[in-house]
């Protein structure tokens, strides 16, 4: 089916949930209210004309600088029917949650964990929602637009400071002190360089 026809069919089935249909470069995105996302996904997955069996990807976008909230984007593909559609669930800024679509696509598990980790969107009904790429004690969600590109001392990961101190403590017993008795490493390098020329 043509992507626009799929979007129209979706709008006929769920008229209250579809907010907008946008097209760019022959790809169609359907902007949805978030309330019935699992129902909509389940219908797309099971409808015999559509059969969207493959979840290509799931990611979040922070639209707050543009004056909107967040968005979770589902790229769906039907291996059987060879067509594609994109769902974009609109999420208000102050209530950052969405229902999990794991009952529809098992593979959404890690995508949702990643989205939670990097953007702080909570997926309700997820069996094991915890950080995946970043350490468990990380503060903040890096892909939010207000997260700084390079951290200050305050916003830096606490574990990094601990590692630095650990390496300082190890250096006391290390190579530098032992070699200072005779010649420093720099001297050795210099001599070797002179000998060569």
């Amino acid at each position: 089916m043509e992507p626009l026809a799929i979007a129209d069919k979706l709008k006929k089935k769920f008229p209250d949930d579809v907010l907008d249909i946008v097209e760019a470069r022959k790809q169609v995105g359907v902007i949805l209210r978030r309330d019935h996302i699992v129902e909509i996904c389940g219908w797309l997955h099971d409808d015999p004309d559509l059969l969207f069996d493959h979840l290509l990807g799931l990611c979040g976008v922070d639209y707050r600088p543009k004056g909107r909230g967040f968005e979770v984007v589902y790229n769906l593909y039907s291996i059987h029917n060879r067509h594609m559609i994109r769902l974009r669930a609109d999420i208000p800024e102050d209530e950052c949650w969405l229902d999990s679509v794991i009952p529809v696509w098992r593979g959404a598990d890690w995508h949702e964990r990643e989205c939670y980790d990097l953007l702080g969107i909570e997926f309700r009904g997820h069996p094991d929602l915890r950080r995946i790429l970043l350490p468990e004690d990380w503060q903040g969600h890096p892909l939010r637009k207000d997260y700084p590109l390079s951290p200050t001392k305050k916003t830096e990961w606490q574990g990094y400071e601990e590692l630095k101190e650990l390496s300082k403590a190890l250096r006391v017993h290390g190579f530098q002190q032992e070699s200072s008795n005779s010649k420093t490493a720099q001297h050795l390098v210099k001599e070797a360089g002179n000998g060569g020329t």
Binding site: V22, A24, R25, Q27, G29, L56, G57, C59, V61, D62, K66, V73, N75, M84, R86, L143
Partner: peptide, 28 residues
């Protein structure tokens, strides 16, 4: 606007999803 484009990499489908707001760099 936004596009999702994928290719067949040796490991499987490698896809890029871009959101562009008209600047010279991706918005997301």
């Amino acid at each position: 606007g936004d596009v999702y484009v994928s290719t067949e990499a040796p490991k499987g489908e490698l896809g890029f999803y871009f959101v562009s707001d008209g600047e010279g760099r991706p918005y997301r």
